[in-house]
Design a protein around this nucleic acid. Sequence first.
DNA 1: TAACAATATTCCTTGACAGGAATATTCCAT
DNA 2: ATGGAATATTCCTGTCAAGGAATATTGTTA
Lengths: 123, 123
Amino acid sequence: MDITTFSALAEPNRLRIVELLLDGPLPVGAIAERLELQQPQASKHLRVLLDAGLVEVQAMANRRNYKLRLDPFQELDAWLKTYRVVWDERFDALENYLQKLKLKEHNTNSNSGGIRNDIQNDN
Amino acid sequence: MDITTFSALAEPNRLRIVELLLDGPLPVGAIAERLELQQPQASKHLRVLLDAGLVEVQAMANRRNYKLRLDPFQELDAWLKTYRVVWDERFDALENYLQKLKLKEHNTNSNSGGIRNDIQNDN
DNA sequence: TAACAATATTCCTTGACAGGAATATTCCAT
DNA sequence: ATGGAATATTCCTGTCAAGGAATATTGTTA
């Protein structure tokens, strides 16, 4: 997973720009106006987004038209996908564990509320 | 979309921690060792992840066991989902456009390679 | 070419953040 | 209570990024 995607989106105004561009490409001026940013700051943020590959630009006469790029979001999506799988597994494991615990609880009272106390340290 | 998720993941070592925790919960020492971090830095990064809600901690005797939390990733996933929809729409629109263009290209040669030149500015 | 519109870049200052080193805290065992 | 292990916090310093203001650049039009 490319970290620059995260750092690009970690800035509030940049995230706002991205969400604005969701409605379609826009030139710098329109972005600055709608988000109430100074034009230079808008340009600077767009530069960062451009370098991060989140956005592409297309020159149209005087205007520079900024448009969302799909790739980084797809990468993000793929990254998340691996997490989803693991969660499903873990959720099942947790359910099993709680099931056993519930039964056990009727007898002893040791380790109440504990989860995964079988951690091993390979120092 | 909560920005703190992005800023938390924007730091390389923190992203490594998250990916490490994918294999299951770990105490600070193990994390520091595997990622070759100083223990204090590991603690500090875990603090940030904790504040961002990416991780939860469970005290076990001397050890503090850190474990991934699902919520922020689910939120991220939901956020991405809205993007996917828009992309599909846009992709279709693009395909249509290219289709028309291809046919047109056989006759005239105007506007070759152009994409969406119908941008309008509502200033 | 001159004036103008749209955008980009530079310089400056300030605040946030990461790592290193030292120290504090917490919990267990004896 | 004392010592020690695991972890957290603090202080310090250097780096980096963001906003403001001014200016440079690029393209258009008369």
